[in-house]
Structures are given as structure tokens and as C-alpha cells.
């Protein structure tokens, strides 16, 4: 006998030679996805916490995450995507995207698609899946009228910085913070 998966979650890395679109099933999320989306969103927030103490995750973050995601589902300007695993990971969510369309009253183009949160389980990274997630998100945002796309992430997150820079993004607004 070789190894088994006693806990029933055999997350295996996707085959890197495969088309990213065939490694996950990406779709708009629904109410039933919330139990699986909340932990994914929390993983991202805990990752952000590593970069700056001002991004410390609150003790009630789990409850809040649920509320925020619920509100997203009801907001016609929001895009909430769930990435589902395939094969042995079928039915299991391995990634999340939260994005929304905001008005730009002073600048052109007048509507901005903001990628607020994007997270992919480690075993699904580095096979073009992240790229696919981004492309699909941009497509949804465009459909909702966005004229440009922006991404929010911690300044210290150099991995994210490089990911976006490689795909033609550049910093346009800086957010500086201090405790008062």
C-alpha cells in the first residue's frame, strides 16, 4: 500500500503541463460557497499580516469575513469568484477573488475595477493558475464597465508587486499610514 489520505483532502498539485483553465474551475461564487471562501479570505489576511503590524488581523475577522462576502454577493458592482479544484479536489475551493467596480469622479477613465483580494492555495500556484485568475477577473470587471484595473496589496508584498509589474501594472497611488 502506498500513502492514503486519511483526512479526505488529498490536494495534489495540478499537472504543470496542463492548461491553467483545466486545472481549476473558476466561476462566480454563491451563498453555498461561503463556508469554504471564509477560510481562504482569512488565509490571505493572515498573509498580509506578515508584512506589516498595521495589518494585524482582528480576533473577530472570521465573523466579519462572512459578512463582507455576503455583502459582496448582494452588490451588483462586486465580483466574487470561487476557484474550484478538479479531479480528486472536485467540490473543494482552492482560490478566491474579490473585486469591485468603483467610480472615478475626477479622472478618466471614469470607472475602475479594483482587485481587493486574490488568493490561491499554495499547491495551485506557479502553474499559470494565478495568471488565469487575473485574466478572468479582468474580463468580469470589464463586463461591469471598468475602464482600468487596479490591485490592492500590502506595500511590502514584493511577490505581488512583481506579479503585477510583469503584467503591465504600475503603482499610481500610495497609501501611507500611521497610528494616531
Amino acid at each position: 500500500m502506498t500513502s492514503s489520505h486519511p483526512h479526505g483532502h488529498p490536494a495534489r498539485p495540478p499537472n504543470p503541463t496542463e492548461d491553467p483553465a483545466k486545472q481549476i474551475h473558476l466561476r462566480l461564487a454563491g451563498e453555498k460557497d461561503l463556508p469554504q471562501l471564509v477560510p481562504l479570505l482569512l488565509r490571505l489576511k493572515r498573509l498580509n499580516e506578515e508584512f506589516d503590524p498595521l495589518l494585524k488581523v482582528r480576533p473577530d475577522a472570521e465573523v466579519r469575513a462572512r459578512e463582507v462576502l455576503k455583502a459582496d454577493l448582494q452588490n451588483p458592482r462586486s465580483v466574487l469568484l470561487a476557484a474550484e479544484g478538479l479531479g480528486t479536489d472536485a467540490g473543494k475551493l482552492v482560490g478566491i477573488v474579490r473585486a469591485t467596480v468603483r467610480e472615478r469622479p475626477f479622472y478618466a477613465p471614469d470607472s475602475e475595477g479594483v482587485i481587493q483580494d486574490i488568493y490561491l492555495m499554495p499547491l495551485y500556484r506557479r502553474h499559470g493558475v494565478g495568471e488565469f485568475l487575473l485574466q478572468e477577473t479582468v474580463r468580469y470587471l470589464k463586463e461591469r464597465g471598468a475602464g482600468l484595473v487596479t490591485a490592492e496589496f500590502p506595500t511590502q508584498n514584493e511577490i505581488a508587486s512583481r506579479f503585477y509589474a510583469k503584467r503591465g501594472f504600475r503603482p499610481i497611488t500610495a497609501l501611507h499610514a500611521k497610528i494616531i
Binding site: 500513502s3 486519511p6 483526512h7 490536494a11 495534489r12 493572515r46 498573509l47 506578515e50
Partner: peptide, 29 residues
């Protein structure tokens, strides 16, 4: 790959992180 501290490892000990992704087929926990 599913451990909660994977992202922290990716930032602070990429050698351990890489090995976690590469090994443990069948996803034993």
C-alpha cells in the same frame, strides 16, 4: 501544502515551503 502557516513559510523559509509543495503525496496530515 494546506497547512495554515504555508504563506508565512513562503516568506520566511522558502526552502521548507518548496519541500512542502513537492513532498507528501496523498496529502497526509
Amino acid at each position: 501544502g494546506e497547512r495554515e502557516d504555508m504563506d508565512a513559510l513562503a516568506l520566511h523559509n522558502r526552502w521548507k515551503y518548496r519541500l512542502a509543495l513537492q513532498t507528501n503525496g496523498g496529502g497526509r496530515q
